[in-house]
Amino acid sequence: MSQQQLSEDKKTPGRDNGFIRALGGLNLVLGAIEKWIIIICVLAMALLMSGHVVGNLLFQQGIPGTYEVTEMFIVVITFVGVGYAARHSRHISMTAIYDQLSGRLRKALLIVLCLGTAALMFYFAYKSVDYVVTLQERGRTSAALGIPMWMVYLALPIGFTLAGIQYLLTTARNLVSQDIYRSFTEKEEYDELPEEDPDLSHTDDDNRRDA
């Protein structure tokens, strides 16, 4: 449901410059990496878990390591997803006050929010690098398959760094353009009510017509 928002990019007024375009290129690459990691993890997790059930039912033999690998997938999805969710400004926040503001004040608050969140993300990235290095030195492995845990937990520094970058990019975009951007690529707006504008299609509309 969020991908279609990417097209809003075109409406950006002409104050975009080479700097923003270069950032945009980097951003696309990072986005594609995040996206594929998440897709592969969710699909692989579904496949592994259902394979495990089927194995148990048919052959009295599940897939060894299903538990720990599933847990690893959740860790990767969660932390890499932090970056991806930041990219689509999906992180949950309480916007009651923010919603009341408008114009410069609103934009200023948004920049404060982005910079503050970016700082926290980079701090966590730094702390989790520490943790990953320590685990690598101590050689912690998983119980069933002996997978080195530091490799899995790389998802933390990666995810936090990517999220930090997203919040910085959003700041940069808001500094150079007139409109307010909730993330680097998404301009701020809410959907209209369906009754007011039936043509403004939403992903779920196809299902609705089928009824």
């Binding site: 959740i74 932390f79 890499v80 997803g81 991806y84 969710a85 992180h91």
Partner: peptide
Amino acid sequence: GMITAVVFI
């Protein structure tokens, strides 16, 4: 994955 991440973080 995204909804999961948003809630799980």
